[in-house]
């Protein structure tokens, strides 16, 4: 994916993909005429760039340029190798809807703790990152996760602490950064935390960036309660109903506006295991933090 910082037009960025000479996924983001921008994107989807470049070039709107003209310049830079292609921030959308799931985080290479968590009476177990840890049995935990087809997102340790076996390293490398699933009528988003914004390919305007930035940058993972009014106001622009995250080693559930924010702490603490049980029951979302004795 290419991210082009525009000049002189309303949208601050244009996102697009080039596969050979074929243009796909054009998005003008962060401002401007949404309807016109969507129409342009649809008209350009899958077209050959040699065919579309003459149509885009030189159109004037303001500041001696326009959205199409900026896209022309972006494509030219990409073709010349002067615009770096970024790896998109990977999202895994779980195809099956659920009613009762367990969510855990910070396994930190503790295969025994993960084994116990996987035995809980739920339809699925999701891990919000740091499956691995500095002093953990990382190959053991990753092999268990692979065997049990655990759905998890990367935490910072999973990107920096390699396993010994190449297939385990590859498993970690291919893990997504965002998780999306449906729980009853709730659209649920899960991620580890703010480290995602340090990665190449992150854009403030990409899908789910708003939810991530509101949690990590605005509210400091819900610790800054003084900004809750602003956070609540911003939930009106969210694309999900539930936001799950880790990152702080704390457990917290707060409802602001129509959005439930759930901070999931570490799986293992001293003599017990802990996870978030999230259930759609009686037409409402039920959240509890479950403790299992070691």
């Amino acid at each position: 994916m290419y991210i082009y910082k525009t000049r002189g037009i309303c949208p601050p960025e244009i996102h697009f993909q080039l596969t050979g000479n074929t243009l796909t996924g054009v998005r003008f983001v962060g401002g401007g005429c949404r309807g016109n921008a969507q129409l342009i994107s649809r008209l350009l989807e899958g077209r050959e760039i040699d065919e579309v470049l003459p149509l885009l070039k030189g159109i004037q709107c303001r500041n001696n340029t326009s959205c199409p003209d900026q896209l022309f310049q972006a494509i030219q830079l990409a073709r010349e190798g002067k615009l770096r292609e970024e790896e998109p921030i990977a999202v895994y959308e779980v195809p099956v809807p659920y009613r009762r799931v367990a969510v855990l985080a910070e396994v930190n290479g503790n295969a025994e703790a993960l084994r116990l968590a996987l035995r809980q009476p739920v339809e699925a177990v999701f891990c919000l990152g740091n499956l691995t840890g500095p002093a953990g049995d990382n190959d053991g935990v990753v092999e268990l996760a692979r065997r049990k087809k655990l759905i998890f997102v990367q935490g910072p340790f999973d990107r920096t602490l390699p396993c010994t076996r190449p297939e385990n390293r590859e498993f970690l490398r291919r893990a997504p950064l965002y998780l999306r699933f449906q729980l009853g009528r709730c659209r649920v988003l899960g991620f580890y935390g703010g480290f995602i914004q340090e990665l190449d390919g992150f854009s403030d305007y990409a899908p789910y960036s708003l939810e991530l930035l509101m949690v990590s940058n605005l509210s400091d993972y819900l610790r800054n309660e003084s900004v809750y009014p602003a956070l609540e106001a911003m939930t009106g622009q969210f694309s999900v109903d539930v936001v799950l995250f880790a990152s702080t080693n704390e457990w917290k559930h707060v409802r602001l506006g129509k959005v439930d924010f759930i901070n999931v702490g570490p799986l293992k603490a001293e003599s017990y295991f802990k996870y978030a049980l999230i259930e759609w029951a009686g037409e409402e979302l039920c959240v509890s933090f479950e403790v299992v004795k070691a």
Partner: peptide, 16 residues
Amino acid sequence: MRTREGIKRFLELKAK
């Protein structure tokens, strides 16, 4: 407010 720059400025001003 959807951007990192906007959030930073909001916090600098101690807005709520």
